[in-house]
Structure formats: structure tokens, C-alpha cells
Design a protein around this nucleic acid. Structure first.
Lengths: 264, 264
DNA sequence: GCATACAAGTGGCTTAAACCAGTTGGTTGC
DNA sequence: GCAACCAACTGGTTTAAGCCACTTGTATGC
């Protein structure tokens, strides 16, 4: 087995030893000789085969981990990453039409499509001073406790999928079900509609970055996997922003889809 | 200087030495004591201050690099990353209205907005067998040389910004200016309109991932910086797809913005 | 004045050895 | 039969040392 992996094979090209090992293993993966789920030779075994120190084989594995090709499990070994089916979120996420037709929220709909059990856990509902970018978009003070924050964790079959933090103005949330765990029929948008805000247009601002420690812990991202950070702003019939949410997704499990008309 | 950085300071919490050093340095950065552009103490200096081996200080720096907080420069030192202003690309990217009003393509417009010189370099124009995802979206065979590929590199002030690969069906491109470096007035979309395809709707599918080696080389991404991968499909007045492009952006320099109406 | 050379700093990579911590499966003892 | 234990594997982290490559400023030689 693993006949392709020997120091002499293919273009060494005067590369660094760690690079050579990484290249050899990567080749085995892309060629299919090592399939997703397969276990790599142990660090000690790799080092011996290539005549290097264990640390050098370890560095090679670190390179592959950074490329998100493999993922190590303490005590068990290093394994070729499984290609996961993506969850897809798009600008139909807010469409009330979909909801009327299926009776499901966008998250539960996507989970059902993939045959997974959806569960949502409320982590915090509190009054806070908003982050700068949220304050700018909601037109509130970044120096006072001017917003209500609702932090939720979303799971698919108990596997963490996304972190969502929703912000609305405290002046509009105070004393309403918005500040309660149960927001009532139509959810948050239902209560905001009571306040005269009809969801009319949305804006999503998307960046990608490496997760913070806390995010990595919750999302269980293997190293080498970034997060998609979506800052959503909801505008009402008057073009006034009334709600901001931040979605943090595992990038290896989530994709975003936007369909839009193009003006001529 | 750097008074905050000593082994005893703050909650060590029985952490690993490398973690302790990373935490201490991160604290200096977030508190502002180390500003963007500042140089960190050298690896040897850090190791000495915390009473560890150089490799341990080095591991701490690796952790911070992975978080994209610092970036090392061979022979010079390790520096706190500058917060860069983002280039912003959105679904107005394809609007012909913007083009008519300014006479600028979306890329040149964004560069002008930031006072940078735009330059676009054609890397390849050739007939190829399409990647699977492109073949699916264009409804062509993934096993033949069924598409024309145009690969371009975009720079801002000679700094690499994005890689764009555009695919159109070979059957429609053959013998037309689409296969030439100069595509003529209105660009690619102009020629495709000649073929009866009026750009009517677009779809962007967005993922994030770590860059391949080749991408990292061109985009000069520091380690710990992912890329945004946008697969765009253009649909004509009949809802038929006629062009697919893949945009690869440095995530630390680019953001995406989508504005969309919400159906009630 | 100016170019060259060099020394001293920086990070980059590797070696070799040791110990820790999680996992697995077989052996032992009841 | 079964539970407890243990040995042998796995990766995780650190130490200590050496050499390489890149950068910078200074000293040297002309």
C-alpha cells in the first residue's frame, strides 16, 4: 500500500524536506490513493520513510492541515477530510412567500432538505452597547446600551452550523416580546411589524476570516477552515434600517447564494 | 515599553507556555499598546522574557499568525497587521446604469473611489475542458474542450486584488472577438449580446476557503488569510445561462455587498 | 563621495530527544 | 462472561542546538 510515497518519487526539485513530504501526501490524496476518511501513516512512520526527524513530518502535516486537506485526531491519527455537502443560504432567506408555502423557517427548510434535525438554542437575550459596525447601521449610539441583543446557536443533528446575533433598537424592544424568549407569531419580524416596520429590502455585507477562539470552539472548525461573516441589515418601507444580524458560518459547511435582476 | 508583557501578568490559568505568550501579545495588540505596523519583540527576545525555548515563542507567533493578527517578514521581524480598507463588490457590479453614468467598469470605479491605479492583466485566453461546477452551470460537457476560458489578474497600484476566470461556451465564442484579447465595445457582454444573450439576471454562489498554493502566490496572502470564492452565473432574457465567472478575492482586502428586495 | 564588504540582527527550517495526553485492544483476575 | 487494567500505539508540546537566508546599518577601501 501507499506505493507512491517514497522520497525519490517525482520532482523533488530541491524543495525543503517538509514541503517534499507534504507534496507526496497531497499527491496521494488528489490521486485518490488516499480516500476521504482514510488514515495517514503516523508522524513517526512518515519521518522514518522520508529519513527525517519526526518534527519535520509533523511540519508537513501542519501544512496539509492548514490547507484543510487533512485533520488530526489526538490518539487516533491524521485523517483525510471528508468532502461535506454544503448548507446553502441565500437572499430568499427572508422571503415570506417561502414561509407561507412550507410553514418552515429558512433554516428548518434547509435542514429538512438535507434530512437533518434542526435545533436552535438561545444563548443570550440582553441589553448591550452595540459593536461599532452595528451602531452605524442602526443609527444608534455606540457608547450606550442602545440595543437589544439576541444570540442564538443553530444546530443540524446536534452539529453546530451557525451563530446568529440579532440587534434591534432598545427603544423599540423595551417591554415588548422582542426581549422575551418567545417572540410570538411571525417571530421578530412580526413584532417589528407591530412597530410599523415592514421588511422591504435587505442588505448583506459579506467577509471571510479565521474564526475567533470562541467561534472555533462552538463551530468546532478544524484548523484551516475559515468562517463566513454576514452582516445583514433590514430596511422598512421608508428605507429606514430597523434590524441588524450577524451570521457566522463554518465556511466548509456553508455556501451563500444570491439571485438578483440586473438593470439594463 | 511593553510593560504589560511579563510571564506573571494576568490570568495564566495553567495554560501552555505557547498559549500564555500568545495571549500576552494578543492583549498588547487589542489594548493598543502594540499598534498596527509595530514590530513585535524578536522570537529570541520573547523566549528569553518568558523563560522558554525559542521554538515555544515561535509557536506562539504561529498561533497569532494563524489568527491573522501579525505577519512575519523574513530578516526584519514580526509586525502587527495593518487594518486595511476593504474593496467592496456587490450586485451592482453588473449594472449597466452605473457604467453609463460613469463610463467606468465596476472594478475601475472602485479603484477610483479609493484613489488607486487599476490595472488588468490577461493571463490566458484558451479553449479548455471546464471544471465540473462550471460545466453544470453552462450546460456543457465536462469531458470535452467545450468552453473558452479567459483568465485575468486585477491589480490596485500593482497590488494583486482578485483573480477572475470567465467561461463561455466554445460554440458561441469560436471565431468571435470573445477569443481575442480585445473584445471590442461593451466587452464580453457586448459580444454575447450580439449572439442574442441580454444579461437579465445573475446568481452569485459564495464560499470561503484557504487559498491554493498558486492563488496564495499571486494574491500574496499572508498565512491565516482565506479567500472569498464567488461563482457567478449570467442568465439571459430567456433564463438561459450563458456565462460563468469565478472571482477569487483576498478576504482581508475584499468584502461583498448585496442589496435585494424582499417579497412579502 | 561612493560602492563594497561585513557583522549583527531578524525569521525559517531542521534535528534529536523527552514527556504528556488521548485511544485502542488485549490480558488479567475475578 | 465481564470488568479493570495495562501496554502500545496515536498526536501535542516543549527543549536545546545548529545552520540557513534575508535585511540593515556600519565600517572599509578606493
Amino acid at each position: 500500500m501507499l506505493t507512491g510515497m517514497s522520497p525519490q518519487t517525482s520532482g523533488d526539485a530541491g524543495q525543503l524536506p517538509s514541503r517534499r513530504i507534504a507534496d507526496a501526501v497531497r499527491e496521494l490524496i488528489t490521486s485518490g490513493e488516499l480516500a476521504p476518511g482514510d488514515k495517514l501513516p503516523s508522524e513517526r512512520e512518515l519521518a522514518h520513510r522520508f529519513g527525517t526527524a519526526r518534527n519535520t513530518a509533523r511540519e508537513a502535516i501542519r501544512l496539509l492541515t492548514e490547507e484543510a486537506l487533512v485533520t488530526p485526531h489526538h490518539g487516533k491519527g491524521v485523517f483525510v477530510r471528508e468532502k461535506q455537502r454544503l448548507f446553502r443560504w441565500g437572499n430568499d432567506r427572508y422571503s415570506r412567500k417561502t414561509y407561507r408555502e412550507t410553514g418552515l423557517t429558512p433554516f428548518r427548510l434547509e435542514m429538512q432538505r438535507q434530512g437533518k434535525a434542526a435545533s436552535i438554542q438561545a444563548v443570550a437575550i440582553d441589553r448591550v452597547t452595540p459593536p461599532l459596525d452595528v451602531a452605524e447601521r442602526l443609527n444608534v449610539s455606540p457608547d450606550e446600551e442602545s440595543v437589544l441583543r439576541r444570540l442564538n446557536e443553530y444546530h443540524a443533528d446536534d452539529e453546530p452550523v451557525q451563530l446568529v446575533t440579532t440587534y434591534v433598537r432598545w427603544s423599540e424592544a423595551e417591554g415588548t416580546p422582542l426581549a422575551e424568549p418567545k417572540t410570538g407569531p411571525g417571530g421578530i419580524y412580526g413584532r417589528l411589524e407591530d412597530k410599523g416596520h415592514t421588511l422591504t429590502t435587505g442588505r448583506d455585507e459579506i467577509t471571510a476570516r479565521m474564526p475567533t477562539h470562541a467561534e472555533a470552539q462552538f463551530l468546532q472548525t478544524p484548523s484551516g477552515v475559515p468562517v463566513l461573516d454576514v452582516l445583514h441589515t433590514s430596511f422598512d418601507q421608508n428605507g429606514e434600517p430597523f434590524e441588524v444580524s450577524r451570521f457566522v458560518h463554518r465556511a466548509d459547511r456553508s455556501g451563500l447564494v444570491y439571485n438578483f435582476p440586473i438593470e439594463n
